[in-house]
């Protein structure tokens, strides 16, 4: 008979918090696994009363949503944590932020509203800002026009199973060019599909349609993640939780 852990099961989750955090500067080179390890250790250092799974190797209850690729910076990464004791969301945000290395910065923390649905269901698109050093904005503008005019742009994408052709055009909801002299900036909204079309794939698509080839690697920043609404805007995925909170506080105030 296999050994079983002695004693009572771990305490249940009594509160779910949703956090938005950024990866910035050199830490854009962290992979999702790197970030996950850093966040778990920081939660321990910050003494956040995490809820744990049962068994011999209990894991803290953390779920990650839509991680940005290695090499891409982000202002809009999301995760949800389950706590065994209720905490003030802002206090958790500050404590966690203090325990993380500079460059992984916790920006927002809200309590998940009861029955409000999952965080993953509120995210289906990313707004990217992609810097293209060595490219002039006029060059980029005509390349973007060519990309948007194309019906389908096939790029070779490296996946676990080797190179695979994907259509980089279909998931692009909108794209525009901007920037300063010597460094064009591409603003693009991409739907999150499988296999994912990432900033590198968008840049490859520009090379395919307009032979746009940046002399050095582009730098991408995920500016926002969320549900793409009919107006083409990427909605704030924490918005409903914040609204529920405000309603709740309003009711309290009314009493």
């Amino acid at each position: 008979m296999a050994r079983q852990p002695e004693g009572p099961p771990p305490p249940p989750t009594v509160q779910k918090l949703r956090l938005r955090y950024a990866k910035r500067g050199p830490l854009r080179f962290a992979s999702h696994r790197d970030l996950a390890r850093a966040l778990e250790r920081a939660l321990r250092r910050a003494q956040v009363p995490m809820a744990y799974s049962a068994g011999f190797t209990p894991h803290p209850k953390i779920s990650y949503v839509g991680a940005a690729p290695t090499g891409a910076a982000s202002e809009a990464e999301y995760l949800e944590i389950g706590l065994a004791q209720r905490c003030d969301p802002e206090a958790v945000r500050v404590a966690l932020d203090d325990s993380l290395p500079p460059g992984i910065d916790v920006l927002e923390c809200v309590e998940a509203a009861e029955g409000g649905g999952s965080l993953a269901d509120r995210i289906d698109a990313t707004r990217w800002r992609i810097e293209l050093p060595g490219i002039e904005s006029a060059e980029l503008e005509s390349a973007v026009a060519a990309l948007l005019a194309a019906g389908e742009v096939t790029v070779a994408k490296r996946t676990k199973n080797g190179l695979r052709d994907v259509d980089a055009r279909a998931p692009i909801a909108s794209a525009s060019a901007g920037g300063a002299a010597g460094c064009a900036i591409l603003h693009v909204v991409v739907r999150q599909v499988t296999p994912a079309v990432r900033p590198d794939d968008v840049v490859a698509a520009l090379a395919a349609v307009a032979d746009l080839r940046p002399p050095s690697p582009p730098r991408a920043v995920r500016e926002a993640q969320g549900r793409l609404d009919d107006s083409g805007t990427v909605a704030d995925p924490l918005g409903p939780d914040r609204a529920a909170r405000a309603r709740c506080q309003g009711e309290h105030a009314a009493v």
């Binding site: 050199p26 830490l27 080179f29 790197d34 290695t70």
Partner: peptide, 8 residues
């Protein structure tokens, strides 16, 4: 694995 070169 570029993360190994950035310190921090």
């Amino acid at each position: 694995k570029p993360i190994q070169y950035v310190g921090g």
